[in-house]
Simulated scan of single mutants.
Amino acid sequence: MSKKPQPLTGKELLKKVKKLGDVSREEKAIECGYYTLSGKQKRVSMVKFLNALIEAEGISLDNDATTETKKRGRSANYRINVQSNGNLSIGKAYTDKMGLKPGDEFEVVLGRKNIHLKQVEEE
């Protein structure tokens, strides 16, 4: 029994799809290797096929996030809420973005409708 070939990607995928012309999407997917074998039956992997086509065309549906933003955890949305005990908690996303370390000190400056944190410089 022969081994199933690797699915086509990139320019090879685009060439093959163009060459296949008017055949159905499912048949194109099978011809390009986007299927799995379940017994003697072929199951078409349409999502993988269409994603490979989109990628081969150079279209990125994902935002091109850096590895820093792909880390686990929440991203900074620049809004915080007052907690039930009256505290304001500034999360790790903000302190990492500013390059702050444990022990860094700030002066709290209260405005009419805002709060400013002014970093205390080391002497």
Rank of each mutant, 00 (worst) to 15 (best):
Y78D: 12
G91S: 14
F106D: 06
S60T: 07
I80Q: 07
K113E: 12
S38T: 08
V82Y: 13
K42R: 14
K42T: 13
I54A: 05
L117C: 03
L20C: 13
G58D: 11
E123T: 05
L100G: 04
G10E: 07
A93W: 07
K18M: 09
K11S: 10
S75G: 15
N87V: 03
D64V: 04
L50R: 06
M1N: 14
H116Y: 04
K28Y: 08
M1T: 13
S38E: 14
K48H: 11
Y35P: 01
Y78E: 10
G91Q: 13
G39R: 09
K97I: 01
K28G: 04
K71G: 00
V108G: 11
T95V: 11
N63D: 15
G33D: 02
K40A: 10
K92F: 13
L61T: 10
G58K: 07
K28I: 10
E12R: 05
G39S: 07
S75N: 14
K4P: 08
D62A: 04
Q83G: 05
M98G: 05
A76P: 03
M98E: 13
Q83I: 00
I80T: 15
A29Y: 06
K71H: 01
Q119T: 01
G103K: 03
G111M: 04
V47S: 10
I30V: 15
E31H: 12
D62S: 05
A76M: 15
E26S: 15
G58N: 08
D96Q: 14
L50A: 05
I30S: 06
S84C: 01
E121D: 01
